Amino acid sequence: MYLGVDEAGKGPVLGPMAAAAVLADPSDLPADVDDSKRLSSKRRESIDAAIRGADAVGVGVAFVEPAEIDRPDTDMNTLTVRGQARAVRAAVDGGVDIDEPIRVVADAGDTSEARFARRLGEFIADPGSEVDAPPAVDVSAAHGADEEDPLVGAASVVAKVARDGRMTDIDADYPAYDGVGSGYPSDPTTRSFLRAYVDDHGTVPDCARRSWATCDDVLAAAEQSGLDEF
């Protein structure tokens, strides 16, 4: 038994980043588990349900909210490590009996795989965190691990489904608009939502990552429009 961990939603301008960890024997995973980016939404949801429904599988999910992402004293690499560490600890605390050191395999969120693995191990073991420290862990990280390792692939699916669920909830929070879209800056629906919201309220919504350049662009465009009308 070992643990795979990955995250989804590093780049969107709306909504949280989701990190997920899956603790299991690979033989207990669905046979067609794969990197979430290579699966349809329907298949991801089916695999997520199968993973969560397996008694011998531990699952942990953690969200890094926009307010934390926007803090000036952090960066995306640190946020990714922090989110993954929270997910690992949640999976370990999820009720699966563990009586040996845990091998953790992570999708590296840093240009240096070794640095990411070292920092992730430190965050997992941090006694100041809100969850009791797990048993000893042996952490490795690799770029593309979500494509090569079944546990990391499973974690990528769980993280993606969790983030998609949060985006569905966020969409429901703004019934006056024509949807919030995927939350990614390249999504025309997301950009239209931001422009409309700023036009109505003069600021971006709480679900937005205010430090993202997309928010600056929308606010600047709204300000210029107001000056033109004046």
Results as ranks from 00 to 15, higher is better:
residue 1 M to R: 13
residue 1 M to N: 10
residue 3 L to E: 11
residue 4 G to A: 09
residue 6 D to K: 02
residue 7 E to A: 13
residue 7 E to M: 12
residue 8 A to E: 10
residue 12 P to Y: 07
residue 13 V to A: 12
residue 18 A to H: 06
residue 19 A to N: 04
residue 20 A to H: 07
residue 21 A to I: 06
residue 23 L to R: 06
residue 24 A to Q: 01
residue 31 A to I: 08
residue 32 D to M: 09
residue 34 D to E: 12
residue 36 S to V: 04
residue 37 K to D: 10
residue 40 S to G: 15
residue 40 S to P: 07
residue 42 K to N: 05
residue 42 K to Q: 13
residue 45 E to K: 10
residue 48 D to A: 15
residue 48 D to T: 05
residue 51 I to A: 00
residue 51 I to G: 01
residue 52 R to L: 13
residue 54 A to M: 09
residue 55 D to E: 15
residue 56 A to T: 15
residue 59 V to Y: 03
residue 61 V to D: 07
residue 63 F to M: 15
residue 68 E to L: 14
residue 73 D to M: 05
residue 74 T to I: 08
residue 74 T to E: 02
residue 75 D to V: 07
residue 81 V to E: 08
residue 81 V to D: 03
residue 82 R to D: 13
residue 83 G to A: 12
residue 85 A to Y: 08
residue 85 A to Q: 00
residue 88 V to H: 03
residue 94 G to N: 12
residue 96 V to R: 12
residue 100 E to D: 14
residue 101 P to C: 10
residue 103 R to N: 11
residue 104 V to K: 02
residue 104 V to Y: 04
residue 105 V to W: 03
residue 112 S to H: 12
residue 113 E to K: 11
residue 115 R to E: 10
residue 115 R to N: 09
residue 116 F to P: 01
residue 119 R to H: 11
residue 120 L to E: 03
residue 121 G to T: 03
residue 121 G to N: 01
residue 126 D to S: 11
residue 131 V to H: 06
residue 132 D to H: 13
residue 136 A to Y: 10
residue 138 D to G: 06
residue 139 V to I: 09
residue 141 A to D: 07
residue 142 A to D: 00
residue 143 H to R: 09
residue 144 G to F: 06
residue 148 E to N: 06
residue 148 E to D: 12
residue 150 P to Y: 07
residue 150 P to M: 05
residue 151 L to F: 05
residue 151 L to A: 02
residue 154 A to W: 00
residue 155 A to Q: 00
residue 157 V to Y: 07
residue 162 A to M: 04
residue 164 D to P: 13
residue 164 D to K: 12
residue 165 G to N: 11
residue 165 G to E: 10
residue 166 R to D: 09
residue 169 D to A: 15
residue 170 I to D: 06
residue 172 A to F: 05
residue 175 P to F: 11
residue 176 A to H: 11
residue 178 D to P: 06
residue 183 G to H: 05
residue 186 S to Y: 01
residue 186 S to C: 01
residue 189 T to C: 11
residue 190 T to K: 02
residue 191 R to I: 14
residue 192 S to G: 14
residue 192 S to N: 15
residue 192 S to T: 15
residue 193 F to Y: 08
residue 193 F to S: 07
residue 196 A to E: 15
residue 197 Y to M: 06
residue 198 V to S: 05
residue 203 T to R: 12
residue 206 D to G: 10
residue 207 C to R: 00
residue 212 W to G: 00
residue 214 T to Y: 01
residue 216 D to E: 13
residue 219 L to R: 11
residue 221 A to C: 04
residue 221 A to P: 00
residue 224 Q to F: 08
residue 226 G to R: 15
residue 230 F to S: 12
